[in-house]
Design a protein around this nucleic acid. Sequence first.
DNA 1: GATGAATGAGTGTTCATTCAT
DNA 2: TATGAATGAACACTCATTCAT
Lengths: 186, 186, 186, 186
Amino acid sequence: MKKNNIIEAATYFFATQGFDGTTTKAISDQAGVTEPLLYYHFTGKDEIYTTILETAFSDYGTALKGLNKETKKAFDKIENLLLLHFDLVKKFPHEMSLVVSPKPSKLNDPENVYDKNNKKHRKWLKSYLTRCLKKGVAAREFKKVPVKETANLIMMVISAILQKKDYQNTQAMRQATVDFWRKNLS
Amino acid sequence: MKKNNIIEAATYFFATQGFDGTTTKAISDQAGVTEPLLYYHFTGKDEIYTTILETAFSDYGTALKGLNKETKKAFDKIENLLLLHFDLVKKFPHEMSLVVSPKPSKLNDPENVYDKNNKKHRKWLKSYLTRCLKKGVAAREFKKVPVKETANLIMMVISAILQKKDYQNTQAMRQATVDFWRKNLS
Amino acid sequence: MKKNNIIEAATYFFATQGFDGTTTKAISDQAGVTEPLLYYHFTGKDEIYTTILETAFSDYGTALKGLNKETKKAFDKIENLLLLHFDLVKKFPHEMSLVVSPKPSKLNDPENVYDKNNKKHRKWLKSYLTRCLKKGVAAREFKKVPVKETANLIMMVISAILQKKDYQNTQAMRQATVDFWRKNLS
Amino acid sequence: MKKNNIIEAATYFFATQGFDGTTTKAISDQAGVTEPLLYYHFTGKDEIYTTILETAFSDYGTALKGLNKETKKAFDKIENLLLLHFDLVKKFPHEMSLVVSPKPSKLNDPENVYDKNNKKHRKWLKSYLTRCLKKGVAAREFKKVPVKETANLIMMVISAILQKKDYQNTQAMRQATVDFWRKNLS
DNA sequence: GATGAATGAGTGTTCATTCAT
DNA sequence: TATGAATGAACACTCATTCAT
């Protein structure tokens, strides 16, 4: 269906040119449809954006929830989290870049799609990391580290990964990133 | 002078709303001048942006070059580099966010102000870090680490720092960041 | 039948929001159908309007022709005419407001439904009134009055009645209007 | 100044084609300017309309207030009121037709320019007429007439006059209208 | 009869920029 | 330096209408 064309085209442009830098004409041209069709399937540019954002956040959330929770070691959880993000950005580069992009100042988002999801995932990540770290420290698997700051630092790295500069997403980088945290924590 | 008002206003808006999300009217209003005055001092919106960008990159470059080069230990150089970025983002939050922001797709930049400076500083950073790491490893100050990937990782963290989320710029975060790299390298 | 729903909905909107202020979507929504169905039953918005107008003019014409012609007194005819209009606007408020509304500038009306009917009824009214007045004057039932101007004035009042402001359509207003003309003429 | 061109052009179109039937392009073409200039002088089509309406109502109000109040006879006041409206519609045909036109359904009028003025002038007229009629009856200048209904009837005629069909605005019509009311009241 | 999907032509509006002074 | 007035090009969006089924 052409609605999917629209979503694909819009996702591409929103991720690469930003919300303000993307025109409805660019989207419709790329999607091979006329502009009015955008307004048949969506109420406007804003809704196209928030729809895409919702999908992106939803995909991201599903991926996070799918993390293997039966791992024995605390570090395995952190390793899996890091590798997951390297995978995600390879699989959904545009969606993931939207997930970490700032809220477009001109976006009218009355249902708070942006803020709600953003907060939710940050909170999830923070609590996931905090739990891992505390458990690892308690079990003497990890050295004593400042939990809050360490979690913050990991989140900064994750954010940088999601912003994907392709050249950073190599096997060697994945390895080095995981090794770095292993060495630091244990 | 009113030109400075314009630059300050524009810097604020470009950093917070993006190039596409910033209108010339917003700039002139905030600067307390009329729109045509922008065109007296600059050739257009593009030039305002590139001018600001040049200053930002120049300030950044000056700061980088000012790094104390007489330190004995390789790690001190890395520590100084990290702390410098924490300081820079506190001092010039808007400029620094522009330094790490992607190139606006609509920006007409025939002199390649953006790309040239961007490449230059990335190169500088990379070579600075590579040299440090190699020297540290050679002098047995550092353990054996994959130089390229480690440099990359540090640059990712630096990039995340410059994007400044205020809450990450605490004394504890600075300490933790430095400590991690120390532990990791030595 | 759904065609009637369409006509009812359109009549309502054309009368209350005007031709230009009425969208085909508003009509189809109100009628509980989809827009393409309008084009199954009519050639387009214009034809919906002219169809409704034809009905309205036809109803109006039928009502006029039904005026009791066997009355003895000339004034009775005028009284009946006035009362008829008070009745009509109560019974068909929307239709009657269309009958006296100006021709929509954007209406494409190649068969001149609007102009033809408008002219026809104005002519009918004028001749009806002129005849009444002349007869009444000749029969000494009426004082000498300027026929043309009196007819005009009555038509102005009739027009104002049809534009119906509900509050003017009371028993007292009907009485007062009739009394006014009785006093004036006799 | 070109702002006046815009107002003149817009007044013409709003009065002859209605608010919904008037495009900003039609206005700017007729005014000999480009469309963006409309938005330099006004915030939008709505404000052009309300500005014109305010002027029209203001002119109308000034004219009403200027009615000679030292006339001895009650009927003179009514005669003057009627003649004033014949004059006004000759002098400001477009403005006056706007004064009695219904509120455009699509007009966004947050300051209630339309309703406020409309109500104000109807109230003024009503109280003016009521006072005249009561005084005239009390002074035995007028026969006993139902005050409220008579006032209503006069207002209906005034409204019809303002809607101006040119052919009704002749010396003979003016005379006939006044004569009828004189005959009716005295 | 009836509809979901789609469109050509506009519609009100914004924006970066220029002109005259 | 500085501005009020003005504009060309584009922008998000709407509308009457059509097509395929």
